[in-house]
């Protein structure tokens, strides 16, 4: 089953953040709670943890892309 992971809203006025690093590559196994990517917004870098376990099937953005809260970021293949 596929599960989409979305960009969290990190502060009320957040309109977008820069996805500055993927910490897992496509094909990697990801456990819920493991850091999946980093996002920078207003001088704050947040490590975002996966909210489900599975295999990272697709990174939907490249490093450096601006992503809005709620937008899908990754697709996990879950059991």
């Amino acid at each position: 089953m596929e599960k989409q992971l979305a960009m969290p809203r990190l502060r009320p006025e957040m309109t977008s953040g820069v996805l500055c690093a993927w910490l897992k590559e496509e094909g990697d196994t990801v456990e819920a709670g493991e850091p999946l990517y980093e996002v920078e917004t207003d001088k704050v870098v947040n490590q975002i943890e996966a909210t489900a376990s599975g295999v990272l099937k697709k990174q939907l953005w490249e490093e450096g892309d601006q992503v809005a809260p709620g937008d899908p970021v990754a697709i996990l293949e879950t059991e």
Partner: peptide
Amino acid sequence: GRNDLTVGGKKISGNAQYRLG
């Protein structure tokens, strides 16, 4: 507005964060 501290309009301090776990 950029999370800096200023004196007389000139910057004396820049601030940043990281969050993990």
